[in-house]
Amino acid sequence: MFRNRKAKDALFTFAFPLAMFVLMELLCFFLKGRHLVGSLLDVKTLVRNTGISAIIAFALSFNLSCGRFDLSLGAQRLAGTIIGGMIAMELGLSGLWFLLFSFLCGLVFGFITGMVFVITRVPPMVLGVGIGLVWECVPYTMSKGKGLNLFGVHGTEILTDTVFTIAVMIVVAVFVSLIMNRTKFGYEMKAIQGSQLIARNSGINIFRHAVLCYMFAGGLVCVAGIIDAAFQTQMSSTMGLASNGVVVSNMFAMMLGGYIGERSNQATGVIVASLTLNLFSYGLTLMELSEANTSVVNQTVFVLFLVFLANRYYFRKRKAEKARIAQALEQRRIMSVA
């Protein structure tokens, strides 16, 4: 029975990407006469995109699963990636160091954001606007508006390597699942999700926890950022909180990942969800849908998913209510007999 349930859960988990693959493959084949994945390069692209969106989704999940939506996360990604990359470039270091320095810078920016949050205790969305404006300004000023340019910089090739991307994604996934499942931090996380008040009364330092959440989120988006920047050879320093688009577009992956992860674990869920969604948008690209239309389709599906998520217990509740009504009718009958 137990094994059966595990098998069922595994089936449930992998049904998502599989179904999506089949759907897009069919569409591609009949509409465009080609396969969804026709070569190793397609696999490579899919892996990279999945990796990047999974890492961002992980980053989002740190704060979002405690009910905080940090509007400055995109700005942190920008600041951490650009400044970390600039430091590594300045020091003449090679690929892995770029990753490390970006990660460290991300941690720093995340940490400061978290500190400001627990000190001011302004709602995260409002705080995100203010601090996001500041963070965007930092890399812009430091790079004189140039952003990070990795074109022709030696040693960054490794960052775009498929195996390396997979390795980073796995490291991040393992890191996240370890930290969420095996460490004190993870236990606190679940407790705070359940009830902030009880968690606090039980001696959990919710403030320190929040700072850590912000910090990890900042570090992770910068890991995704540098991989992205290495592939595109650049990351331009944008202003006006435009930086948030990348992060917001991965929210779907995070939410879907949370849903799928209920039956396995969050790490698997997020990766599977990212893969599913990337198969989806890759398929749409192959069908030569313009970028705006792809986005429209994607977001519409997201809305529907959110509606589903908000009402998923509706039927269960209806059922319980019906059972109760039946009980009431029975009671009435008994009373009328009496």
Partner: peptide, 26 residues
Amino acid sequence: SIIQGIRGILFLILVCTAQTRPKGLP
């Protein structure tokens, strides 16, 4: 570009001075 940063900082200052800080996290 600097103006944006200053805007952000003033924003934070004003939020902090004008609002009551809750005891727990929001």
